[in-house]
Design a protein around this nucleic acid. Structure first.
Length: 308
DNA sequence: TATATTGTTACACC
DNA sequence: TGGTGTAACAATAT
């Protein structure tokens, strides 16, 4: 489940690997996942031949200049004033294969973080878009659930991209101050704290995994309403946001579900999870059995002894 | 075959 | 108007 640290991992790896590469061939296997223009791709995305042609036509011959991120959205800056916005949603993956990796893997990858996951040959049945570069290297975009998307936007239309408008501050930036966090939380007095942490308008990029982990370290249960949270507890939550996310980036992400790095390897953050996905297991700190509850329709896990 | 999964948005209601 | 709560949606694995 790519959240900020997973997306950041992919951004850093791709930025390094794609910089300066020239697109020679684009293959679109799932037309519904691509778009051109700032508009939201509608749920009833039609299979439009023209749209696919424009997508391919626009990106062919362009150079990848840099890769950046806003919240969980990847932004590929292309030559000619175009950007490609990519959301991985639940199960999106990028695999970048150059001659060296091709030689090592022969094109086969174990793309699930399970001991007996089968080796998969790229492109697989879940590969929806392929970019081939002039030097022979290849970028694969995979998505088992097909919830993700890729959309090309001209820079002069970037202001009209809705999903970029309302994001709150980036938690790793200096402008994400304790005051700004307190103010944002107190606007949502009646909501549960886990929901608030996962609200991208309050703070960008935090999802189910990292909200659980942050709340564990801050010793606050996920279902507490904001109004009942003491200032020192809120202060603790703020205090742990940055280090937990940084730890995730340092470990190259959590390979929960389908997340893999751009060479197909798994992130190591799962080793450091205290509560996420640990229901029924013993708390690493106190041995109490981890419990889970529904918060805003999502599963939140917590230690009933460590978290109050 | 019913269910669970998550990020995001839509919508009704107060 | 805007906070709140709920549901819907995407598609697949199990």
């Amino acid at each position: 489940m790519p959240e900020l640290p997973e997306v950041e991992t992919v951004v850093r790896e791709l930025n390094k690997k794609l910089k300066g590469r020239l697109v020679k061939v684009v293959v679109v296997n799932s037309p519904k996942m691509v778009g051109v223009g700032p508009a939201t791709l509608s749920p009833k995305r039609q299979i439009e031949v023209e749209k696919v042609k424009r997508f391919i036509g626009t990106i062919k011959g362009k150079e990848f200049v840099s890769v950046t991120r806003r919240a969980k959205l990847l932004i590929f800056n292309l030559s000619g004033s175009w950007s490609m916005l990519v959301h991985l949603k639940m199960t999106g993956q990028f695999i970048f294969e150059d001659a060296k990796l091709q030689e090592r893997t022969q094109g086969f990858y174990r793309l699930l973080n399970k001991p007996h996951a089968p080796l998969v040959k790229m492109p697989s049945k879940h590969t929806h878009v392929v970019f081939k570069f002039t030097d022979g290297s290849v970028l694969y975009f995979n998505d088992v659930r097909k919830f993700g998307y890729m959309k090309l936007v001209h820079d002069k239309e970037m202001g009209q991209v809705r999903e970029l408008q309302e994001f709150g501050p980036e938690p790793l930036n200096k402008n994400f101050t304790e005051l700004c966090f307190f103010t944002a939380v107190k606007k949502h007095n009646r909501r549960q704290i886990k929901e608030i942490l996962m609200d991208n308008k309050v703070v960008a990029g935090i999802g189910n995994i990292y909200s659980d982990e942050i709340l564990f370290h801050a010793r606050v249960r996920p279902n507490r309403k904001a109004v009942g949270i003491k200032n020192y507890e809120l202060s603790n939550i703020y205090k742990y946001i940055k280090p937990v996310l940084l730890k995730g980036i340092q470990a190259k992400g959590s390979s929960v579900g389908d997340f893999v790095r751009t060479d197909g390897s798994v992130g190591q953050m799962g080793k450091y999870h205290f509560v996420y996905g640990k229901r029924g297991r013993k708390c690493k700190k106190c041995g109490t059995i981890i419990e889970s509850i529904k918060v805003g329709g999502r599963t939140g896990s917590y230690c009933p002894s460590c978290q109050k």
